[in-house]
Write a protein that binds this DNA or RNA. Sequence first.
DNA 1: TATTGTTATACTCTATAACTATA
DNA 2: TATAGTTATAGAGTATAACAATA
Lengths: 184, 184
Amino acid sequence: MAKSGAGQIRYTTYRKSRQRKRAADVAGRTAAPAGLNLAALDGLAGFFVRMIQLRMFQRFHARFGKTGLNPGAFCALVAIAANPGVRAGALGDALLIKRPNMTKLADSLERQGLIRRLPSDLDRRSVELRLTEAGRARVAATMPQVLAYEEATLAPLSLHERRILLGLLGKLNDGLAARTAGDG
Amino acid sequence: MAKSGAGQIRYTTYRKSRQRKRAADVAGRTAAPAGLNLAALDGLAGFFVRMIQLRMFQRFHARFGKTGLNPGAFCALVAIAANPGVRAGALGDALLIKRPNMTKLADSLERQGLIRRLPSDLDRRSVELRLTEAGRARVAATMPQVLAYEEATLAPLSLHERRILLGLLGKLNDGLAARTAGDG
DNA sequence: TATTGTTATACTCTATAACTATA
DNA sequence: TATAGTTATAGAGTATAACAATA
């Protein structure tokens, strides 16, 4: 699989003993696991978000790849479950998926028998998305597994820290969404 | 540009008045900006990390795209600056970039005159990466701009919240890195 | 004319396999 | 035999433009 990349970190000794100092060391972080001095990147949320996203998606794929569900497809299913009859465009706006790509995602989910596409009565240009019975069953079966996977993924943090992190991520996401909607 | 996607959220009225309740509402989050009920995804850090990463990269590209620097290239430059002579493979391990892709990234940075590749004396299979003078100038000029961009991006959070978030992200990233290094 | 969804397509990022040169 | 870097290539994921149906 993807074992050749992050799987075998070399622990090179370029600067292995140089501990990273950072103002954000509020939660008892330990030293850097790799042998590089990345202190200059430690103040950048964008760097961490990218790294964590890569690591989490890799873990998600290792855990759920065989079911054919990737994170985006799972989120779409959950969003459709909570918003039956949502238009494809509205779902794409909410999940930051462009219309052509949403069409492909809906194609895939429909081919798997997880959703149905129905033309809207009010606006016959629109397509309403609904889960099939199989889709509901899939969400019901997968959701607890995803929650358990999330718990395991966030294990480096205490329960209290996870709650704080989720709250801050949600607030940041809301703020960024509002700003993006504001300008262009 | 990318105005058709997230730029024009429709504010559809599928469930617009249904406020999201969540246990993680520690920091005064306001209601959902879009018209969809995404409460079921609010407990998933993976969902937020993905959304925030997309929004931050979009902003980064809008701000620095004209300079030819993407987030990955910038991080690589900063990492090389802090670790002069780092091997290409070690840098890729630290930044989760696979070897063939690291070669392409190094090609690009070298073509731009920002780095040099020098065969190692100790192990002549290895290639040591160092910034050129132009590379050092680029990092020196770009770093404060990136820090300012980060400040603006994190504006939805208070200064205290930003520090907490950075600490938690760093701790989570370290923990995930250690675990990934542990198994395979 | 503007919008929804679709199609076709291109571009970026990432992943795999095979090759070289060293070790 | 194993490793570092490279090359070629394939695969996701994501982007733009043009089209038909509808408003």
